[in-house]
Amino acid sequence: MLLSVEKITKEFPIQKGLFGTPTAYLRAVAGVSFDIEAGEVVGLVGESGCGKSTVGRCVVGLHQATDGRVLWDGKDIAKLSPEERRTLRRRFQMVFQNPFSSLNPRQKIEDVLLEPIAVHGLFRPSERAAAVQELIEQVGLSSKDLQKYPHEFSGGQRQRIGIARALACQPDLMVLDEPVSSLDVSVQASILNLLTKLNRDRKIGYLFISHDLQVVGYISTRVLVMYLGVVVEEGRVDQVLKSPRHPYTQTLLKASLGASVAVKGEQLSPAQVVPGCAFYNRCPHAESRCSNEKQDFQEVDGVWRVACWKWHKIG
């Protein structure tokens, strides 16, 4: 298995005591598990603050999980030797919503792309210039663009460069965190087309993170729906988006089509401890049992699973 995530939890300290020791925690991710096979596209969807980015960061090793394990190629990333870590981490890359916020504005695009190639020692030095040219063309820009600076590009072009930069590492998995969320719909379409093509031609797997269920439904084959730190429903896209079983997924689907929804209120803060179902305060089907019973996954059909004890009654 290319990637396995086993019951990861991530807590952030939110209050410190007298000697700087944390006295209160916020649980951003509370026991999330999933696998991604080579070349597979898995969508992770949910509203802001539900923990999507935190999961993404744990997957590429930018955060260390408080509990649980992340395995790259079957190896626990907390137990890798420094060499193993260096070789493996090249294969797991992250692309952010605003890839340029971390870039040096005085660095030419050519150097932006050469950097990861040099760091990972890819290609012979004499071949690198040609490799960078191929990269920029692969993401739909021209070799002339290599001599330009970050500010000379539009939002969609910047995202193409962000993708080229991740591609430079020759990854097997890319974690794409809201890659099209700040783009106009016509530009978004061209980035989604590019990503689909790269997945097809190069067999790169994606963990595609987005708050937009329609975007996730379009690009993924399998989807994980997250709410307040937990996955509440997962399955193949044709299962989950056709007839969602979890009341939250049902709500999200309606809202994503612009229809009216029956829910009230908003997602609770992850600093609050919720003894029962995370969706209890908003769910139109809630009963008293939901407020104090943790919801485990129930199997609907094969890989299709839902964390709601009432799922078969609410179709």
């Binding site: 379409a189 989604l192 689909t196 329609q214 439904g217 379009y218 690009i219 988006l241």
Partner: peptide
């Protein structure tokens, strides 16, 4: 028509989206 065809939906899976080239 372009705006509508550019909107990704679950039903369109596998079909390339229409992008509106240019600025």
């Amino acid at each position: 028509e372009g705006l509508l065809a550019a909107m990704p939906t679950f039903g369109q899976q596998g079909k390339p989206l229409t992008s509106i080239e240019g600025a």
